[in-house]
Design a protein around this nucleic acid. Structure first.
Lengths: 206, 206
DNA sequence: CGTTATTTCAAACGCTTGTTTAAACTGTAC
DNA sequence: GTACAGTTTAAACAAGCGTTTGAAATAACG
């Protein structure tokens, strides 16, 4: 395995658990068993490393999401639950791409939104607009009465629900296990959150 | 104004915008126009300062929330929308307690959940269990079919929605203004998010 | 006023951070 | 076999962090 990939793997898992600000380059290079200076040599800076970690997932995920959303958009009598369910398979496929891929990616998403004051939001909306556009189109078809502004807000609420849940999913899964004797994995969490956000977006307009 | 309160006010607004990790004691004491060592003299440590900032709000808010939830719990044919709406007035009353109080408090809540790996969750659930208990009771009455475990998950989804929305509410309000020519304040955001989370919790069980 | 106790202050402490340097090492091509 | 680009290495850098120190300033009280 190349030095570059060793760094990416170590950075990914540490970022997911501790956040970007909370993880030092020394932790990363130590876990990756490479020299400290290797990060700056291969990536230039910590910020570029963060981008690289996110890009590795987004490049894998975004074509899958786009085609799933386009497919769903062609159905008759489309429901919001169907739209949101389109995310399940692409997200879970990240587990074949990399071990703990789904969980890591969603946690990284959460970290990026809160850690770095909006830099990741800019990164995603400018670098991967196709996913967002197709998603908006699908939601519009399933719930045409929703105004553009109301949709804007509800989609951000949804983003918040997912991102926040995933960034604390380890803790939540532990509690569920000890309080309800119910062992649940990341796929289980996703299947619980989908009906919630679908109902939220489908809420009647006040 | 006392040094202690000058520090609390400066810390509050900086923490809300930049998070706990992202704000240094030097920034705080500089904005408060007090000496750097004053934080450690009056509060002992940065961690204790964070607790003090949160306590100032929770001590104000928790009795209001508790009585509002108890009142709502006595109604006949209670709906989830009514339960969640019980939060609106107590939260908005924080604006009379302090300028930008509502926004600051909710943003702090968000920061605490993601910045400090669960320390704030522990702090709230152990220090202010009355609010949570009454809230659970009300939800149970409005939606008795919901199992304890499903409720656990959906309440955490709700927490995530609110907390995430509020920690990025400044950015969202800016976008809403520029994209839809619609100036919205924190009260407006709350009134938009309440129907969303109420519908999410009320979602049919799969 | 004089004597405590409390609060402020500048300076330094030890530590960690991201980044840079220049030398050593590796492998490939002429 | 020597030259050269690519890579790795240990060491140091400057800057920022939370915290501590001991003396100066202020307040409170008999």
């Amino acid at each position: 395995m190349s030095t570059k990939n060793k760094i990416l793997d170590a950075a990914e898992s540490l970022f997911a658990v501790q956040g970007f600000n909370g993880t030092s380059l020394r932790e990363i290079t130590s876990q990756a068993e490479v020299n400290l200076a290797a990060v700056n040599y291969h990536f230039g800076s910590k910020k570029e490393l963060i981008k690289s970690v996110m890009s590795r997932y987004m490049n894998e995920l975004s074509p899958l999401l786009e085609s799933a959303l386009i497919e769903v958009c062609e159905r008759e009598n489309l429901t919001l639950l169907e739209v949101f369910s389109a995310f399940i398979e692409p997200l879970l496929s990240l587990n074949e791409f990399k071990e703990n891929g789904t969980s890591n990616f969603l946690q990284l998403l959460g970290r990026g939104y809160t850690d770095s004051q909006g830099f990741l939001r800019w990164f995603l909306t400018t670098q991967y607009p196709g996913v967002i556009n197709n998603f908006v189109k699908a939601v519009q078809k399933a719930y045409p009465e929703l105004t553009a502004e109301e949709m804007f807000w509800r989609l951000h609420f949804t983003m918040g629900t997912v991102v926040f849940t995933m960034s604390s999913s380890d803790a939540l899964m532990d509690i569920a296990k000890s309080d309800f004797n119910n062992i649940i994995d990341i796929a289980g969490v996703i299947k619980k959150v989908i009906p919630y956000v679908a109902a939220g977006v489908a809420a009647p307009i006040v």
